[in-house]
């Protein structure tokens, strides 16, 4: 039976599901838009991936599961994770495997972006932007809509530009009005798109790399790293080649799959994975305000087939402490 490890990265816009084999190679990787509830997307991803790999390999056994991303906790209780890891460590782990002597990792996703500084194969510093859209993929999506050029074509357009216009990119609102202005002045779509790409990169570096030393090798990953226009803009900004590794869009999920596998190998534990049957179970989430004290915590509850399997968000543990034992039991 083929032994696999599963990695799931739940972000706010996309969910990534990855299966890796005994050599840590990705045999199936899905990049899905998180539509509706993340739970539905996770299950959809698992069902799709399961169909594909069983067709290819027959019966498989999942020996380790890891989750990451902003929804890592939720994903972790739904599937039964062996490792729940923050996305910075997960992304860095995969990047270092691909480019062992990487020094700087640019990661640009749909809703957030990060920069990770690596020295001698270890993370030494990082910065994250979760609040400002200027410097993330959604900024590009939004502008694509405005200009009427599909986002997939953005890279191509940017490369065709001969003299990118300079667009004030400090903030999406300004960028937009500046862009409209340039359009009215008669700039071509190519030049505007190239200008946008440059402004996105400038913005990203201003926000995240402030005063930090940018050393090669540079690795660029995350959904936006598909865009050749942005790759080029990065190369121009840092004056050096920028490597887009394989599996560039699913690095977080890949990284956490490998980490979960290490965890199981080292500890010799059994996996917590609840099996593919979870895709058939009924999951609900509920948010309520605890009235136990003046904190009025926003408490999240995850219910599986009518039974609560997790709580979080309570500052004092009033809710989550009730459950630790149950979560363990419902592992199998």
């Amino acid at each position: 039976m083929k032994e696999l490890a599963l990695g799931i990265d739940v972000g706010s816009v996309t969910t990534k599901v990855v299966f890796i084999d005994e050599n840590d190679e990705v045999i199936e990787g899905l990049y899905l838009r998180t539509t509706g509830s993340p739970i539905i997307t996770i299950k959809k991803g698992m069902t799709q991936a399961y169909a594909y790999i069983t067709k290819k390999y027959g019966d498989v056994e999942v020996m380790a599961v890891g989750t990451t991303g902003s929804g890592r906790q939720l994903a972790g209780v739904i599937v039964g994770a062996d490792m729940v890891k923050n996305e910075i460590s997960a992304h860095a782990y995969a990047a270092i495997r691909e480019v062992p002597d990487a020094s700087t990792i640019f990661e640009m996703g749909g809703q957030d972006s990060k920069i990770i500084f690596i020295r001698n194969g270890a993370v030494v510093d990082f910065a994250m932007n979760t609040v400002c859209a200027a410097g993330t993929g959604s900024f590009l999506d939004h502008q694509a809509e405005r200009i009427g050029v599909p986002i997939e074509k953005f890279g191509e357009y940017a490369l065709k530009s001969e003299s990118p216009v300079r667009i004030a990119g400090r903030c999406t609102v300004f960028a937009e009005s500046d862009m409209i202005h340039k359009q009215q002045m008669g700039a071509t779509s190519e030049d505007i798109i190239a200008g946008l790409s440059e402004s996105l990169v400038r913005n990203y570096l201003n926000n995240l790399a402030r005063g930090k030393e940018l050393l090669p090798k540079f690795v660029f990953q995350g959904g936006v790293s598909e865009n050749i226009g942005i790759i080029k803009a990065f190369e121009q900004a840092v004056g050096h080649e920028v490597i887009v590794p394989k599996n560039n869009k699913i690095m977080g999920a890949w990284g956490v799959a490998m980490l979960a596998k290490r965890e199981i190998e080292i500890t010799g534990r059994q996996t917590n994975f609840k099996g593919f049957k979870i895709t058939e179970l009924k999951h609900d989430t509920r948010v309520f305000y605890c009235d136990g004290c003046a904190n009025n915590c926003e408490v999240y509850e995850v219910i599986e087939n009518g039974e609560t399997i997790a709580y979080w968000g309570d500052r004092c543990g009033r809710w989550s402490n009730r459950l630790t034992s149950k979560v363990r039991i419902s592992k199998k």
């Binding site: 996305e87 270890a122 979760t130 980490l259």
Partner: peptide, 26 residues
């Protein structure tokens, strides 16, 4: 209590552990 803060604290602790020669796992 935004999720980004928790992520950053966790990543910082990982960084510290690795720096001391301990791994990300186990």
């Amino acid at each position: 209590g935004d999720a980004g803060l928790v992520t950053r604290i966790e990543a910082f602790l990982d960084l510290i552990r690795v720096k001391r020669g301990d791994g990300l796992v186990a």
